[in-house]
């Protein structure tokens, strides 16, 4: 099985506060292609920091993050933008779609930045929106969609460009139970069908119960790393 992400002794210290905050302490993990991993832990345990660091949105204080053989901590800012664009999909807690673009345009947006051919882009965007059950909302802007529908568009956007892995920061936190289950079903199916690695940070037991691997962080360090056959 192919290793998608490997972290080596990852540490992150925030020095802005009165006293330095150790958000991550020597985190060494490997994520395999197609894994469905939940990062859990109490507030302040370092879940979001971990996702930010492996997503190239934040730099580690120490250690390395190797994705596809590249230590992303060594990349320059502009290279990092390009790296994120080509390798990583993001799903945010509060959907964060571009409000002036339709569902199709939102899903196409990353592929557009990647300069994919227009026809392929449109086909893929339509396909992804169909996969998340929104084939009747192709030309609808986010403001006219429910929270659950917006998050499904966000999932379609993250997966459309076929990234190496998708990072989702508490994706169900703002959803009602039905929408959350619906979203999780879709993500689980896409995880299997598209063989895309999914890494969630979550408090949500519903997400944890679906994950094939659950990593528990406490005070920035890995307290537990459990695999489940689901």
């Amino acid at each position: 099985m192919k290793t998608v992400i490997r972290t080596n002794n990852l540490s992150k210290v925030y020095k802005d506060a009165a006293a330095p905050v150790h958000a991550l302490k020597n985190v060494s993990l490997e994520f395999i292609q197609g894994e469905f991993t939940a990062i859990v832990g109490p507030s302040g345990s370092g879940k979001t920091t971990f996702l930010n660091v492996i997503g190239g949105l934040d730099k580690p204080t120490e250690g390395s993050v190797v994705i596809d053989g590249v230590d992303i901590a060594t990349l320059k800012e502009s290279q990092l933008f390009d790296f994120r664009l080509r390798h990583i999909g993001f799903v945010f807690q509060s959907y964060n779609l571009i409000p002036v673009l339709t569902a199709t345009e939102n899903v196409s947006f990353i592929m557009l930045l990647q300069k994919q051919p227009k026809k392929e882009m449109e086909r893929r965007a339509k396909e992804m929106l169909e996969q998340v059950g929104l084939s009747d909302k192709l030309d609808v802007r986010p403001g006219k969609l429910s929270g659950g529908q917006q998050q499904r568009v966000a999932v379609a956007r993250a997966l459309a460009s076929k990234p190496d892995f998708v990072l989702a920061d508490e994706p169900t936190a703002n959803l009602d139970t039905e929408s959350a289950f619906n979203l999780l079903d879709i993500m689980a199916r896409l995880n299997k069908e598209e063989n895309i690695t999914l890494i969630f940070s979550t408090h949500d037991q519903r997400v944890i119960e679906r994950a094939s691997r659950v990593i528990t962080l406490v005070d920035g360090a890995v307290a537990k790393d459990e695999a489940f056959d689901r």
């Binding site: 933008f81 390009d82 994120r84 664009l85 409000p99 947006f109 930045l113």
Partner: peptide, 15 residues
Amino acid sequence: KEFGVLMAIGMKKTK
């Protein structure tokens, strides 16, 4: 937030 998302998903600063 919107600018944050644009840059997070890989839209370059120049754009």
